[in-house]
Design a protein around this nucleic acid. Sequence first.
RNA 1: GUCUCCAUCGUCUAGGGGUUAGGACACCGGGUUUUCAUCCCGGCAACAGGGGUUCGAUUCCCCUUGGAGAUGCCA
Length: 490
Amino acid sequence: MSVRVRYAPSPTGLQHIGGVRTALFNYFFAKANGGSFILRIEDTDRERYSDESLQDLYDTLNWLGVQWDEGPGKGEYGPYVQSERFDLYQEYAQKLLDEGKAYYCFCTAERLEQVREEQKKTKSKQQGYDRHCRDLDPAEALKRREAGEPCVIRLKVPMDGKTTFHDEVMGDITRKNSDVSPDPVILKTDGFPTYHLANVIDDHLMGITHIMRAQEWIPSGPLHVILYEAFGWTPPKYCHLPLVMGKDGSKLSKRHGSTSLVDFRKAGYLPEAIINYVSLLGWSFDDSREFFSREDLEELFSMEKINKAPAVFDYRKLEWFNGQYIRQRSKDSLMALLLPILQADGVVSDPMTDDEASILDGAFPLVHERLKFLNDVSEMIRFLFREIDSWNADDALPRKIEMAQMPSILDAGAALLDGFDERSQEENEQAFKDKAEEMGLKLGQIMQPVRVAVTGTKSSPPLFESIGLLGKDKAIARINGLKGQIEATL
RNA sequence: GUCUCCAUCGUCUAGGGGUUAGGACACCGGGUUUUCAUCCCGGCAACAGGGGUUCGAUUCCCCUUGGAGAUGCCA
């Protein structure tokens, strides 16, 4: 039987690292086994549902290059949106009702709240619902329901015995039935199913062979098995993925930093960096290899190498991957990403002028080696396209130099640029060295003021290349500009 | 509280009854270099603790400790 796995997100928020990790693992597992990856939308929470979340889901998967074999509007097992399967759930819930495996419950939210309070206060061992309506006479209950009294349907969880399910990663997991959530709601007042019901029905009907999801679902594993048994179905295989944690060891969330994929996208991360890094959260290949493209993973991913312990999300390593992948990108493909950023930041015009295009072309190699995030590009090369309004004189001031010496150093720098175009890179460097020596300075003590004057910052792409791109006249003008600014303060 | 799960460098991990416990990020040092990066070289750094089993445990078992997750008409 061929592998069929699914990613079944709830469109109630932006796609985040945890969800994407689950999606990716499912996707890779399907691909590596010649199976199908199914996308199912679990939009049963009508309160929290949002169209934006749904759009974000599609955007994110597309950005990552993850394509689903079946999903909304595509495939034989549809519909793949749970709200469109509404009637199906009624039907199956009714079946459980008819067989005495589920029951109507008329308890109000207030009563439930009270029960919970009481349990908390008395430190009762019994947790959750007190099964108040479990033994209502079914005929009586039906009458009340038909009279319009709001109600839910709850599953009758066996009160003794135990339930075991096998997890491909964890091994056997057993829970006493008395410890399983006591009679959870499977159909809500609004007629929509809860996760447990919808999930089990859909996974069964869609022929899902492996359920790969985060470990936070382990506790409801036995409950789901009980549901499968109630329907007389065989549960699929389970594979619970280790949780992704923040630095403090709790489940990764917004307070740990950016977690949504849009954030990463906006911050200038490359999809290949995210894919590579995330694939290594709870999975590994061997003792040395750590670079994997999406295509590699589609081939190499294996369930056996998933590990059990939770993984802390390390932003620094992701950054490092991002830098690596930026350097791996071809000029064209990186430019295609950089140009819109430069335009949005007003560094170059839209469309670019010929001048800008040629400067940018020359600046590319400089930037390629230096970029960690795509978005850093604007700050890095703005000075090549836009004038500098004012300088930070302290930045320009080298160690062991007085501000009063700066005008003469800057003059020397400007003078050196006079013959800049006629000299080679090496000759220019030599000229600066000679001049520095002549003035009793170290090379850096003349380079730094000039660098800050020309680029506006202490750290910049190589100075001579920058001046070459900018044009020596502009460079000289900036040097004089900084000099003027300093003189005004002396 | 209760239930379940987990436990190798700070982090991601490899390994597995006998290894100098390997790699990567981060960090520190050095080299290249006009700054910043890149790049190269080197270093620091781990089997949570206690019991077993065994000739021998980091590896297998148990306990303790620590951590996490779940305990919703959210998924």
